[in-house]
Structures are given as structure tokens and as C-alpha cells.
Design a protein around this nucleic acid. Structure first.
Lengths: 145, 145
DNA sequence: GCGAGTTGCTCAGTGTACTGACTAAAATCT
DNA sequence: AGATTTTAGTCAGTACACTGAGCAACTCGC
């Protein structure tokens, strides 16, 4: 009968926000490397030699998705996946030199992109937006920790 | 070299927000009908007899994605897709009785879910969050209108 | 009224993201 | 040590979401 106004629905808005971000990313940052892939490169820059499980916690993705992502990045030669000799279940991950180079390049571009993306808001609003999204996401993740 | 802090990156936060939302949706709203599918049902409740192109504008999804979604909902008997006799290119879409019933049921559950999802914020913050996301998304969509 | 352009849809391909079932390896508990 | 449980990873299946190519139908300019 009566339809609702989707612009008051956080889920719908979240999807649109991510969609808009992806679009801008491909034009301003990279067509080859996606934002989740950058998150993986970034995590491995900060913490090399971790396994897929630990990585999945850092970037907030589940193990299946990480496996796909890591396989793609491996195929492109941006990281290495080596079986842990001390624990035969684990794949130990490490960036290659090329992977580190790609990460360095994307860091500057990403910074620039974020400025453009948030340009419609003033500085206080930008800070508020990021903080509020973080709180909602954290709380929701808590529910199924 | 130096890794960045992803918690200050709107794209990463947007993905986490949507991820958290999807998780809560499947537990509190429906396991069969996803949030984008609900958006389609809602749009057709408000405006029946539109074609896929118009629908894609209403829910902010591209034509390929809409085609998939509509096909799935059609298979489940929630909507009908009829060739427009006046324009042989168009598929005219209309909810079935069952589709309208599913929409009605999900409206109440979605309202409840949104309350839980935004519960970590007070009312002013909730309003702020939705408004700020909307402004950023609108502006970004403007760039590639 | 006919050719050129536009429009609505489909299809193939790729990437993200989940669940659930499974395998293999390690840790734990008698 | 042997049986049980937990853990890391893979695989199949499904859904969302985009691009780019292509097709069929309509519109417009002349």
C-alpha cells in the first residue's frame, strides 16, 4: 500500500554512499586495484607475515572473500602466499616489491580522492560523518562478535 | 612504507556500514528478500507500471543490476514483467498481490530494524548521519550525472 | 518515408561478499 | 598416545554491482 521514503533508511544510504565512492575511486585512484584490494595492501604494509584469518579481521572481510582477494592480488604478483612451516594450515602473506610500490602510489591518490569525495561537507561535518559511521558500524559488529 | 589509517577513509567505512547493515537485515528483516530487493518492491508500490530504466533511477542501480534483480523477483512471483504494447523495448513492471504482501510485511520489520541499527546514536545524531551521507552521495552522483 | 541516432534491454565478464559444507592440520582432553 | 575439538583454508552456491558489447525498437531530421 504505502511506500516508505528510502532516503531515511541507513541501509539504502550506505549502499549509495559506497556506490558513489566506487565510481569516484575508479576515475581518481585506479581502474585495476579496487578499494578492498587497497585495504589488503595497506594491512600487509602495516603487518607483514600475517595469515588470511588475521588479515580478514583487520580489513573486516570474511575468510572466503579474503581468499578470493588474495588470490587475485597474488595472480597480479602484488603479494606472496607461503605455507607456514610451523603451522601447515596457515598461508603467510607478504607484499612483493611491486605490491609495496602499488600501495605507495595509491596512498597519495586515495588521500586526494577522499578530499574530493568529502568536499561537499565542511571540516567539522566530515569529522562528524566519519565518527558517526564508525560508531554505528562498530556497534553492529559487536552484536555478532 | 607507511600504512594509512583506514578508519579515516570514507570508502572503507561505507563498506563496513553496509556490511553491518546486511548482517542485521538477514536476522531482523528477511533471509529471502534482500535490502535492494525491498527497494525495488517499494519503488513499484509507489510507482507501478514503470519500466526497468525508470526503476533503476529510483533505486539508484544500473540497468544490468536491475535486470538481475527483477528476474529474481519475477521468478519468486513477486512481480510481473510485461512487454509494453506501445513500445516494444520496454518491460512494464507491476507487483503481484504476493509482492505487495511481502512489501507490507517488510515495511514494519524494516522500521524496527532501522531503530536497532541506529540505536548507538541519539536522535540528533541519527538525523545528522542520514543527512550527511545523503549530501555526499548526492554530490558524488552529480559528478557523473 | 528512410537513414541516422537514441533508447531499453540483454548478455558476457569481472569483482565483491556472504553462507554452509568440507578437508586438513593443530591443540586439547582425557 | 588416542579421540575430540578447534582452527585455517578451500569450494560451491547465491546475490549484488559494474563495464562494455550488442540487438531490437523507437524517434528525429531531412
Amino acid at each position: 500500500m504505502t511506500a516508505v521514503d528510502l532516503s531515511t533508511h541507513p541501509g539504502h544510504l550506505a549502499r549509495r554512499l559506497q556506490q558513489a565512492h566506487t565510481l569516484l575511486w575508479t576515475t581518481m585512484v585506479s581502474e585495476e586495484t579496487t578499494s578492498p584490494q587497497f585495504a589488503v595492501l595497506n594491512a600487509l604494509t602495516e603487518k607483514p607475515d600475517i595469515d588470511q584469518r588475521t588479515l580478514s579481521e583487520h580489513v573486516h572481510l570474511d575468510r572466503s572473500t579474503i581468499a578470493d582477494l588474495v588470490a587475485r592480488l597474488g595472480r597480479r604478483g602484488l603479494l606472496e602466499r607461503v605455507r607456514d612451516p610451523h603451522d601447515g594450515r596457515r598461508n603467510v602473506l607478504k607484499l612483493t616489491d611491486e605490491g609495496a610500490a602499488v600501495h605507495r602510489k595509491l596512498v597519495t591518490r586515495t588521500t586526494r580522492m577522499n578530499r574530493v569525495f568529502l568536499a561537499p561537507l565542511d571540516e567539522g561535518e566530515q569529522e562528524t560523518l566519519l565518527r558517526l559511521i564508525g560508531r554505528v558500524a562498530d556497534a553492529a559488529e559487536e552484536l555478532r562478535g
